[in-house]
Nucleic acid binder design. Sequence first.
DNA 1: CGCCAAAATTGATCTAGGTCAATCGGCTTT
DNA 2: AAAGCCGATTGACCTAGATCAATTTTGGCG
Lengths: 237, 237
Amino acid sequence: MKPSVVTTEPNGHFCRDCAVRDFSVCSSLDPAELKEFEHLGRRVLFDGGETVFSEEDTTTSFYNLLDGVMRLYKLLPDGRRQIVGFALPRDFLGMNISGRHNFSADAIGGVTVCQFAKVPFGRFVESRPHLLRRINELAIRELSQARDHMVLLGRRSADEKVATFLLAWRERLVSLKGASDTVPLPMSRQDIADYLGLTIETVSRTFTKLERHGVIEIIHGGVSLLDPAKVEALAAA
Amino acid sequence: MKPSVVTTEPNGHFCRDCAVRDFSVCSSLDPAELKEFEHLGRRVLFDGGETVFSEEDTTTSFYNLLDGVMRLYKLLPDGRRQIVGFALPRDFLGMNISGRHNFSADAIGGVTVCQFAKVPFGRFVESRPHLLRRINELAIRELSQARDHMVLLGRRSADEKVATFLLAWRERLVSLKGASDTVPLPMSRQDIADYLGLTIETVSRTFTKLERHGVIEIIHGGVSLLDPAKVEALAAA
DNA sequence: CGCCAAAATTGATCTAGGTCAATCGGCTTT
DNA sequence: AAAGCCGATTGACCTAGATCAATTTTGGCG
């Protein structure tokens, strides 16, 4: 929870130099607005494994993920965990209506976020309907993804879950790192299991089975899709 | 898909007399705006089993549910179905960014909706940031519910799923019909199964088991919670 | 290097929930 | 009130994936 490094703007970091500038919430802002917006956010770094915010915490900030990967999850009282999503650069986190976060967020590996204090951010949005529209757009897109994931969790087999996950993850990485059959998997097997509603053993066995069948190759820090068409066939089922 | 009855405004129906007036999207509108808004929507009735819109249909309308219950679902190519939610009066349906609906919606029993053509509705919202804020609020609330449901689908047992469903459904009905231990279940067992990621047999067996243990009583068109505390204990697990 | 801890894999076994197959009601229709 | 239907229930059996239990592999780190 204690961030490793904090860089307060303006201190070498400006929106106009920001990698996510044209893709994240801030893409809806014009240069003049951006100048003002700049003062609202500050960059914060987290180490792998650190928790950025926890479910039920009072929401004091929103976060724009600039670099790295995060796991977003909910815990049951007895410790069972459901990962509700992985966040990638450009994702905007923390919106809620209860005033409390409705999931927890951990850094997977090092992470850089642009942190906005809730109140000034809210004030800034208030007078900028186009920014509100952008935020709404992101919420609706997430809602659609959430529904897709419900189908996966409720109605798909382990093989289908894993194949679908690999394809969807690869697809999300396209706009960040370009298309490739080599799919980096920065999250652990346990994370994948908790995302897919499976156990770590089933995930591991499914990976090995796909490898035995020559569909994928398990490489350091990820997998390589040797036969993407076959993976798609498995996911379609 | 062919609606049973269409009543075009103004023809005996006005927003100011509308049952959902103070609770739905339109709660953000002042009397003057409401007068204008009135001309955008028309009431449409659907019989039970009718489909209001289908996944992948081009979105031409948004819908405000005025009366009745709807099931919102997605189908896999092989026919497996996941119900992503049940809609109740006050719910606003149809928002998306792809221009296509991302789920299908059927009436369960007779239903009345207030239908808005997409383009004029969009124009109306454009100049009304408070309406946009209201829509955003609804989207964020739904997103939170969707995440809760992911936890249920991915990490809970059949008993927990059924108990959680009964409590959540009862809770949703409070603001519509008042608090009660008698929970009407207008949807079929198959609908419940497809919502919880179970089979119809498991839902049926779980109901019977709860009844045998004196926790619920299965009554015509629903269940009665004989021991609500026990249901909550099962759901908490 | 060699040692340790954590993550991943693999194997053996078990079980919650699925599948298949009869009934059982409760309505509607005549 | 008999027939027919459709949803719901119940029973017998089966299996995908969980659980339990070792290894094996990997990644720091002195």
